[in-house]
Amino acid sequence: MSWQDWASGVLLLLGCGFYLAGTLGMLRFPDALSRLHALTKTDNLGLMLVCAALAVRAESLRIATLLGVVWLLGITASTVSAHLIARYARRSKEAEP
């Protein structure tokens, strides 16, 4: 096994660990805000590590760059959607009592 295989294997495992932790947090945490906290932090890092793992193994620089773009798009979308969900959750909490 070459160093690329080792590096990407380690990165993949780390990324999957983050995904697992995030999923667990989303399932077990009590309210919307803490669930979002678990999801966004770990999701972004998990996606970055998985993309990095695939980029290390990529055949060309083009594919590696594309994986970087995938990660950037992913964090852009998740930032905004998490913000919107959090705002909605806070509004409906304030409206309740």
């Binding site: 798009l73 852009t76 979308a77 930032t79 905004v80 913000h83 919107l84 705002r87």
Partner: peptide, 15 residues
């Protein structure tokens, strides 16, 4: 309105 959605649209729509 939120600044974040404006920023998102500015990035995402051309893309």
């Amino acid at each position: 309105p939120t600044y974040l959605t404006d920023a998102l649209l500015a990035v995402v729509i051309p893309g």
